[in-house]
Design a protein around this nucleic acid. Structure first.
Lengths: 337, 337
DNA sequence: CTGAAAGCGCTAACAA
DNA sequence: TTGTTAGCGCTTTCAG
């Protein structure tokens, strides 16, 4: 067992309270005793127990980070930002991979509740805040990651997905494409629906038709499969917009297998601009999100609320996406070039 | 504040101890009272405080996962395995990104000590176990991730990197390459030195020369930079073996910029076989590691030690790597084909 | 400036 | 079968 404050007190021949003061209110302690206590702390390698501190404080300096896919480089960039912000403030991050399953998300939410975490950063599986309501009641700081806040009870840090979807669509339209395909994820992934809305709006106003197909998950494999069966069903289009880069990478694989060249036969646009988009078989045109910054800002937001719930006002931080044009998109009729 | 056991006891008009028994020894409680207590628990939405439980138990059901690069898909696959194993056993994972910096690793180790975590999974920045010794003394279960155990005080789960390095070298040699380049990471990254040793051994016994160059980090960007300057310095070789896939992906970018074609001019072999290796510009030949399984096994190992330190015997679990041949490698003189 | 003591939420030993 | 109690490590009054 690790040394406790009692051990330190004994070694420095002072009382428990004095040790605590050395740690938390050093100015209240006479220099000579302070030095003596600090020496004892060093000798014993004493590190205070976070659990005991928390038991008194009511809340732990712990953040829960709930993401739908830990293997997605997008979320890992976000996680880096969260982690850096947390470490700066002495917080620790519990990693929760909901795997896009509501049931798993619920399980983790219960775990985080049992841990009495101070704050939760969540890219929710569902649109509703219902699963979070208990936590909110108990005063846990929650901020939504990637979704604009649905309610006024929480902070959110997001990227303007409607704009992003529009950016992608407009790029395709400007290139002269008139039959767009939207490769979506499973129905009701919240962070995808805004992208779809933005895209549809842009398409409508340009009077361009959009065919919607859906992958079963937001992964490379699912993108491949979805594209495969769409092609088998006679799908024919010159521009493919994807709900994220993983889907795009998978879809390109399927297109290539079918003998279609990107971008000569089909232009492909991804979303997220993960690092690998640039080194993909065909460098991918994609809508970039400031991932690290998003995570960092979101974490600062929750931590702020944790530290000072009284004066905290809920905020919505929104970043702007940016279209990164690479080799996977080309004008609709290459010969006109 | 969340409901406590006291609240539950009051609502069910029983004593504290009875509530505890309902939770931990339901068989000792009369059915009727048990039902009453369970109802109170449900009504109040009571979830026990992990901190309080831990304070008694001495250790938290928490695992620290310390990895050098959270953005590396390799470690994220490992993390998925860890996380799944943890959740199964009611453990929670604190994510610690050491960023390949000893100082940051130390900081996290202190944090984990303060959290009184039950176990630590670590892919250490340094070779020595010294930074971990205090934790070990305090009875924290430690297992090394990716490195075979350096000492007998800890478990380890690893992949045979010596073999893997050999596999890569032999593949290049069989293809007829006689001038190999080894693109290593910064000196002393433990998990890389075994790969280098295996590779060098294979090269020696085939009497093949190896030029060693080193990237500043294990990232795509660093691989690109390192290759760039090596080429500028007149490096000339037909086969490039890389310490991981990220380096390989970056190096390929630099090669392409220099007008060199993969695999026509240079064969490239990566290491790890991350998912994107398959969809890279040139699908990458790589040494595959069972990443998820590695993480899962490692987590089971620590958890086993946490749960029952007395009967626990330290183990070394070692997985076998596998060479996955893709398009980035070709015989040394294409015309001889 | 320092010490003593209460209490955070829980478990386990013991009493009833 | 149920209740009572001590104590895990810490912070924070309140006395001295």
């Amino acid at each position: 067992m690790a040394a406790s404050m009692k051990d330190v007190a004994a070694r420095a021949s002072v009382s428990l309270g004095t040790v605590s003061n050395v740690l938390n209110h050093p100015d209240l302690v006479a220099t000579s005793t302070r030095l003596r206590v600090e020496e004892a702390i060093r000798d014993l390698g004493f590190i205070p127990s976070a659990a005991a501190q928390q038991l008194r404080a009511g809340r732990a300096k712990v953040l829960g980070l709930v993401v739908p896919d830990i293997a997605n480089p997008y979320f890992m960039e976000v996680a880096r930002g969260v982690e850096d912000a947390a470490l700066e403030s002495g917080y620790v991050v519990i990693l929760c991979n909901s795997d896009e399953q509501a049931e798993r998300e619920d399980r983790y939410l219960a775990v985080l509740e049992s841990q009495r975490v101070g704050g939760i950063l969540i890219a929710p599986v569902r649109k509703s805040l219902k699963p979070l309501s208990r936590l909110l009641q108990h005063g846990v700081a929650v901020t939504l990651l990637g979704n604009a806040a649905i309610s006024h009870d929480v902070c959110s840090a997001s990227v303007d997905d409607t704009l992003g979807g529009g950016l992608a669509a407009e790029h395709a339209i400007e290139l002269g494409h008139t039959r767009l395909v939207w490769l979506a994820g499973p129905r009701d992934i919240p962070r995808v629906s805004d992208r779809e809305a933005g895209l549809m709006k842009a398409a409508r106003s340009a009077k361009v038709h959009v065919t919607r197909i859906a992958a079963a998950q937001m992964t490379t494999a699912a993108g491949d499969t979805a594209m495969d069966s769409a092609l088998a069903n006679g799908l024919d289009a010159t521009a493919l917009l994807c709900a994220n880069d993983l889907l795009a990478l998978g879809a390109i694989r399927a297109l290539n297998r079918a003998g279609l060249k990107v971008p000569d036969d089909v232009s492909v646009i991804g979303y997220d601009d993960i690092e690998f988009a640039a080194s993909a078989a065909v460098p991918l045109t994609s809508v970039r999100q400031p991932k690290y910054e998003l995570g960092y800002a979101a974490a600062k937001l929750v931590i702020g609320e944790c530290e000072d719930p009284a004066t905290h006002a809920h905020q919505r931080v929104q970043f702007q996406p940016q279209l990164i044009v690479r080799a996977s998109t080309a004008p609709s009729r290459p010969r006109t070039r």
